[in-house]
Amino acid sequence: MLYLELLIQGIIYGSMYAIIAVGLTLVYGLLRILHVAHAGLFALGGYLGLLITNATGSLLLAMPLAAAGVGLVGMVVYRLCYHPILDRPPYVALIASIGLFIAMEEIYRLVFGPYGLTYNDVPLQSQIAFLGMNLRTAELAIVFGSVILLGTLSYLAQKTRIGVAWKATVDDPQMAASFGIDPLKVRYLNFFIGSGLAAIGGIFISLLSNLVEPTMGGVPSYKALAIIVLGGLGNVTGTLIASLVLGVVEAFGTIYIGHLMDRDAIAFAFLILVLMIRPQGMLSGR
């Protein structure tokens, strides 16, 4: 029973990591940029979700609005921060991204205050019996929400013309353009979807902790960066598997070696260990 509980806890956190990391890997797959500022968009999603929920009392309304709003901000980030420097070496975009992330944290501090915000009435906190365990509704919502969102993303990529166009642009942008696919539109779409997912991730984490604060993007996003390396850079399937593996390792680790290090330390120790053994990632795809 303990193992099942730990497994489910691992899947809950793994689902949340997956939502954040898939957005990052989408950007890396298309532009080969390590989009550190994704963490800032994740935090913005948390803020917007919380503020809309507090204002309207509806989390169901807050999630799509926050995702769409952060998606649009993601498009602006691409246009202003990355687009002008695409022809420069990748470290230029990385430095710009780190700078943007720091700036975003400071803006949140100035606008929303340094101590963080909490929900007036935290949604989805009722207990539900699931496989003999008591789980918070929010925890189940995170797992099912992630499955639905990532399933929808997979459907878009596999079954629609725009999804095929996106994959073609990832493979060979020049040839994709020569068949009439506008690479700029694909990049905007990519940032919209990736940033929208980050926003949902930010809302998910705020439901578990009832706290949204300026630096909340830091740790989850560093983990997400490590996850996309672990999954094989640009490999979406690898990213999903690595997210779940990391969540489960964290859950088991907190029980068995929790007296030696905390949850985040366990996660990073595991990531370092795996990358020492397989620096190309667990699923070294493309």
Partner: peptide, 19 residues
């Protein structure tokens, strides 16, 4: 040839007809 190697044959043809 510069096909899209990770796309299926059908997807490559769909890209060809994207315009």
């Amino acid at each position: 040839r510069r096909l899209f190697p990770n796309l299926t044959v059908k997807e490559n043809l769909i890209v060809g007809g994207y315009s």
